[in-house]
Design a protein around this nucleic acid. Structure first.
Lengths: 188, 188
DNA sequence: AATAACATATATCGGGTTGATATATGTTGA
DNA sequence: TCAACATATATCAACCCGATATATGTTATT
């Protein structure tokens, strides 16, 4: 999904400045499955504005730099709907954690232990923040996104906590050949 | 992780051509957590070669275009280790599926049903292919990557299958306010 | 037997995106 | 006091993706 459409999505939920749109990807509603940088958001808003998909209101007040507040137009609303009607392209997942873990045998064992501990802490922290979210008033799609996302974090956390010790053990003593399998798998 | 380091990682496992490196991201060992295109792989191999991190052997035979086989040098091996020693940057996850799902209320219900069915089919298919992999002879890090990856797919599949019907039901009848929560969550 | 579809193999390029940096100011905490 | 952080916009080099070009072999379909 290009950044222009992403901006339309954020603005569908209410008017916002470029800075606030960035925050939606940083810590807001979209933070777990989309991202965009200032370097793409500001040019995107410029183009959307010139194409009439958003309206821009210059807020020259306060003691800050001018704030440009963007608002979705009817045309922009239509463009968002058109975009989500096309079949979604495959997920893109890029993880340096997985890449490093893949080559764990090349690292000192304490470093691998630290890597896992930090990952576990990250999952715990993320789950904690996500559970504070009040789901009672939000639409069903948003709820499903939230639940699916949290399930992924929780099962990752469970898996790492369960296998961490035997994994580090195995790195210490590669001859013992215990295999790590998917404990969550159903019978097929 | 930049594409140069990604190439070093693939070549650590054995010599390969640019085309074969691409396949490692497409359907091979790295396919679930990294990606790179030809447009970045070929220039990367050129730079790695000129910097002495890989050796290039031109295979002018067969009835195909010349095949350039790249092999990791000792210097390249060191560069890979240096790269995985630095703390990994956060995961990047970009999902159009989640984005579309987030705005499910804007779509016709049959289209949402199709979206979920295709996602479920994708998870099933992925899990099926991953379970065919023989884990007995591979290093522990690779096994953990595999197990963690498969756990994520499996729990996503379980979650979607469990909540699909009530979700579609709710889209039909938004007044009923059943909430979707993380069924996999432990007590805290 | 023709021909479409797919696989092997490298390479380039326009356009989109990131991550860093610049600019300016206000607030919070040590 | 002064660093760190937050608000707010903007630009730009480096990087990367997706499409396209080129050339040929194999497999499947009709």
């Amino acid at each position: 999904m290009d950044v222009r459409t992403l901006c339309l999505g954020v603005l569908y939920q209410g008017e916002a400045s470029g800075y606030e749109i960035k925050k939606a990807f940083e810590e807001g509603a979209f933070s777990h499955f989309q991202d965009a940088s200032f370097g793409s958001i500001y040019p995107a808003l410029g183009r959307l504005s010139s194409e009439g998909l958003v309206d821009c209101t210059q807020m020259a007040q306060e003691k800050r730099p001018d704030k440009k507040v963007y608002k979705l137009t009817d045309k922009g609303n239509d463009a968002l709907i058109t975009s989500i009607l096309v079949p979604p392209s495959p997920d893109k997942f890029a993880s340096d954690f997985f890449f490093v873990l893949y080559f764990a045998e090349l690292l000192p064992i304490p470093q691998v232990a630290l890597l896992l501990d930090q990952r576990i802490a990250f999952y715990k922290n993320t789950i904690e923040r996500m559970s504070e979210c009040d789901l009672s008033a939000i639409p069903a799609g948003r709820q499903l996104c939230h639940g699916l996302g949290m399930t992924v974090y929780q099962s990752s956390l469970d898996y790492l906590e369960k296998h961490k010790d035997s994994f580090l053990n195995k790195l210490n003593n590669p001859s013992k050949n215990t295999s790590f399998t998917n404990s969550n798998r159903h019978a097929s």
